[in-house]
Amino acid sequence: MAEPVTILIDADACPVKEEVYRVAERYGAQVRVVSNSPFRVPVSERVKRVVVSDGTGGPKFDAADDWIAENAGPRSVVITADILLAERCLKAGATVLRHDGKPFDAASIGSALATRAIMEDLRAGMDGVGGGPPPFGKADRSRFLQALDRVLVGMGN
C-alpha cells in the first residue's frame, strides 16, 4: 500500500483550509497546517499544526515556506499562492495547487515567475496605488475542491 498523501498548507493567507480538512478526511490524507502563528485546527489524528519561528519564539520571514519546501515530495500536495514556494516544491516533486484550484506545474511556473517579476516592477512605480487580487468567491472555492479531489484520486488515494 502506498504511503498516505500529505497536504501541506501555506496557512497564513489560505482561504480554503476548511475545504482541505474535509477532503483530506474523505481520502485519508495527512494535513500539515504550516504558519508563523497558531491557527485553530480540527481535533484529528490526520491534521497537525506546524508553527515555525526564528528559534527564539518570534516569527521568521519565510520560515513557513522553508519548512514546507523541506518537507514536500512526490506524495505531497502543497496549497499555496506563493510562486517562489511553488517553484521550490515542484522541484521536490510535489503537486502544487493555488487556492483557486489552478495548478502550478512545470509548464506554468516559468510564466508565473515572469509575471510576478513584471508585477513587482509595476507596483514599485505606483507608489502604493493598486488593487490587489480580486475577491475570493464561491466559484474559486468550488474550483479548488474539484482540483484537490482530482489530484488525490490521481495519486491513488
Rank of each mutant, 00 (worst) to 15 (best):
M1P: 07
A2I: 04
A2Y: 06
E3S: 12
P4S: 08
P4M: 06
V5D: 00
V5N: 00
T6W: 00
T6N: 00
I7K: 03
I7F: 02
L8H: 01
I9R: 00
I9V: 15
D10R: 00
A11P: 14
A11I: 03
C14Y: 05
P15S: 12
V16A: 05
V16L: 07
K17Y: 05
K17A: 11
E18Y: 01
A24P: 00
A24W: 00
A24H: 02
Y27P: 10
R32L: 11
V33K: 00
V33Y: 03
V33G: 07
V34L: 08
N36L: 09
S37L: 15
S37I: 15
F39W: 05
R40K: 15
R40P: 01
V41S: 09
P42E: 15
P42M: 13
V43G: 08
V43H: 04
S44H: 13
R46F: 12
V47E: 06
K48L: 12
K48Y: 09
V50R: 01
V51G: 04
V51F: 06
V52P: 01
V52N: 01
D54Q: 07
G55M: 12
K60C: 10
F61P: 08
F61C: 14
D62F: 10
D62Y: 06
A63T: 07
A63H: 02
A64S: 12
A64T: 03
A64L: 02
D65C: 01
D66I: 14
W67I: 09
W67C: 06
I68D: 00
A69L: 06
A69C: 06
E70M: 09
E70C: 04
N71K: 10
A72M: 04
G73F: 02
P74T: 08
S76L: 07
S76E: 12
V78D: 01
I79R: 01
I79S: 03
A81Q: 14
D82S: 09
D82M: 11
L84Y: 04
L84G: 07
L85S: 04
K91M: 10
K91Y: 10
G93R: 05
T95G: 02
L97K: 08
R98M: 13
D100W: 04
D100T: 07
G101I: 00
K102V: 11
K102P: 00
F104P: 00
A106C: 03
A107Q: 13
G110E: 11
A114N: 05
M119S: 13
M119F: 10
M119I: 12
L122Q: 08
L122W: 14
L122Y: 12
R123F: 13
A124Y: 11
D127I: 03
D127A: 12
G128V: 04
V129P: 02
G131D: 14
G131A: 12
P133H: 13
P133W: 09
P135W: 06
P135E: 09
F136K: 03
F136H: 05
G137H: 11
K138A: 15
R141T: 14
R141V: 07
S142A: 15
F144E: 00
L145A: 12
L145N: 04
L145E: 14
Q146A: 15
A147K: 03
A147T: 06
L148E: 01
R150K: 13
V151T: 10
V151N: 02
V153G: 02
V153F: 06
G156S: 11
G156K: 05
G156R: 11
N157V: 08
